[in-house]
């Protein structure tokens, strides 16, 4: 079965599962599948349907953030109970937002799209690599760990995710991109917990300040900056539209 059709089937069933009951796996996979399909649109140079996929991802974003925090083992019990209540309330909002008629129409449209041709896909991969490199250069120029640095890291993480999914779709080696995206993902998850702690405290919950998280975020950002030159070289090779792909045996 063509990849687009397979992913579209997944999208349908995951959207239904996420609505029927609280299902962290369905929410996570729904976001991931939507992201993979957005990468497939990027490979075909298509603009239409991207907003719909963005809408789908955003519809479950808050639920996903809460699920990520609830899965951590360093959350104190009072905060876990608060997160649990927030997630329960979010489920109702998710069902309202996740209009199944729109996701069904989106799935119908996606499954009929022809596959992108190889030349267009190759040019698109090069462009996605350049965009990730540009975001990485911006991030590498930062120092410290304030909010603007975190926004810059988050932007790089998003671009690496889009590139990774496009590489996976095209069966091109993506390990360095995946590792960098996962590293930044851990930093962004810590930053999310730090923000949530502040929100919980401002709503009257008594929880410890996030000092250890701040140290972990700073260390994570510093590590990502240190690894940037190697990743940059890899992205530069990917950004070339001729010659073999890096580290994939010249296929």
């Amino acid at each position: 079965m063509p990849k687009s059709r397979l992913r579209t089937r997944e999208l349908r069933s995951l959207a239904a599962r996420a609505c029927i009951r609280r299902d962290p796996d369905a929410v996570h996979e729904l976001r991931r599948t939507a992201s993979r399909l957005a990468a497939r649109l990027a490979l075909g140079g298509q603009r239409v349907l991207r907003d719909d996929l963005r809408w789908l991802r955003r519809s479950v974003a808050e639920a996903r953030d809460l699920d990520v925090l609830l899965a951590r083992d360093d959350v104190e019990p009072s905060l876990a109970a608060w997160l649990e209540r927030e997630r329960e309330a979010e489920q109702g909002r998710l069902v309202e937002r996740l209009d199944l008629a729109r996701s069904e129409a989106l799935a119908e449209a996606l499954e009929r799209l022809p596959d992108p041709d190889d030349d267009a896909a190759r040019r698109a991969l090069a462009e996605l690599s350049r965009r990730a490199r540009h975001a990485g250069d911006d991030f590498a120029r930062t120092t410290g760990a304030d909010e603007t640095v975190r926004v810059s890291a988050h932007r790089l993480r998003r671009r690496l995710r889009r590139l990774r999914h496009a590489l996976e779709w095209s069966d091109v080696h993506c390990e360095p991109v995946r590792v960098a995206q996962d590293d930044l993902g851990r930093v962004c998850d810590d930053a999310l917990l730090a923000r949530t702690l502040e929100r919980a405290r401002s709503s009257g919950l008594s929880v410890e300040p996030a000092c250890h998280l701040e140290r972990a975020i700073e260390a994570g950002l510093e590590r990502a900056r240190g690894r940037w030159p190697a990743l940059r070289a890899h992205l530069t090779a990917l950004a070339s539209t001729d010659g073999p792909w890096p580290d994939d045996g010249g296929r």
């Binding site: 719909d52 008629a101 729109r102 129409a105």
Partner: peptide, 8 residues
């Protein structure tokens, strides 16, 4: 500008 699919 934005786009949206609509089954209707």
């Amino acid at each position: 500008g934005t786009t949206a699919v609509d089954g209707g």
